[in-house]
């Protein structure tokens, strides 16, 4: 896919995701050739689709496809996915959720403990989703501080808020670098999801603060992204779990792996 085709695909996907979510979006993605994209150009398709899910606030059950691709199982199933705290969930394809997840639109169901599944690709995909969610929050906060005035000046002129948003931005840029530099290595994927989870949670904190009272209301979109970031962070290992796992690896090996090179 060349740059122009990728740009076109991004526009199409963004438009699709802005109008549909859940099973409807699953169907639209299938029509757009998701299965072929995943088979032929996973390196383009996964980052793009998952980041756009985050940016648009839509959701689809595509994580199942990523995990199944890695396990080599038959498509269409819903594998049990590890959640933080030793819990397990599945991502229902029919869009229904029975427990009451923090993010009520996500069709996550608690299930009995499943078997070990390879997680690298799923973690990387979720990392892109978290990055997109973080960018969505930052875009909302940025717009708000430019538009709203207090003390006769735009909120954007207050350094305390500028620095918070800069902090959110730097975290997201760092996470994107980690996601981009990811090779096929499990450790790269682990660090990528940890970085993205942490960046999304940092963005949530700073953006929530910059939005003040309006960001606490149900009619403002912020809370949807905040809740999504919290839920996605726990899936396939939270930033805290993964960071600790990275530290255990250091203690085991006694040396820091240099995972990217020039």
């Amino acid at each position: 896919m060349d740059a122009e085709e990728r740009e076109l695909l991004e526009q199409t996907l963004r438009k699709t995701m802005s109008g549909a979510s859940g099973p409807v979006l699953d169907a639209s993605l299938a029509d757009l050739g998701w299965a072929e994209m995943l088979a032929e150009e996973p390196g383009t398709a996964i980052p793009l689709v998952f980041r756009l899910l985050g940016e648009t606030g839509a959701h689809a059950s595509v994580l199942n496809d990523i995990v199944l691709r890695e396990t080599g199982g038959p498509p269409g199933r819903t594998p049990a996915l590890p959640y933080t705290g030793g819990l397990w969930v599945e991502w229902a394809r029919d869009g229904s959720a029975d427990d009451c997840p923090l993010d009520p639109s996500l069709p996550l169901r608690r299930v009995a403990a499943g078997g070990a599944v390879p997680l690298a690709e799923g973690r990387r995909a979720l990392g892109w989703w978290l990055l997109g969610t973080g960018r969505a929050m930052l875009a909302l906060a940025r717009r708000h501080v430019l538009d709203r005035h207090q003390f006769g000046r735009p909120l954007a002129s207050f350094q305390a808020l500028r620095h918070r948003l800069a902090e959110a931005y730097v975290g997201l840029e760092g996470a994107e670098a980690v996601l981009t530099a990811t090779g096929d290595d499990d450790t790269c994927a682990l660090l990528a999801k940890a970085a993205a989870g942490r960046a999304a949670l940092t963005a949530a904190r700073h953006c929530q603060q910059a939005l003040g009272g309006i960001g606490f209301t149900a009619e403002h979109d912020l809370h949807r992204h905040v809740k999504r970031a919290l839920v996605l962070d726990g899936l396939l290992g939270s930033a805290r779990d993964l960071t600790r796992e990275a530290g255990s690896l250091l203690l085991r090996e006694g040396r820091t792996p240099r995972l990217v090179d020039l």
Binding site: A195, G247, S248
Partner: peptide
């Protein structure tokens, strides 16, 4: 492990 992992991250 948490602190070392965070430093490495």
């Amino acid at each position: 492990a948490g602190a070392l992992g965070a430093a490495w991250l």
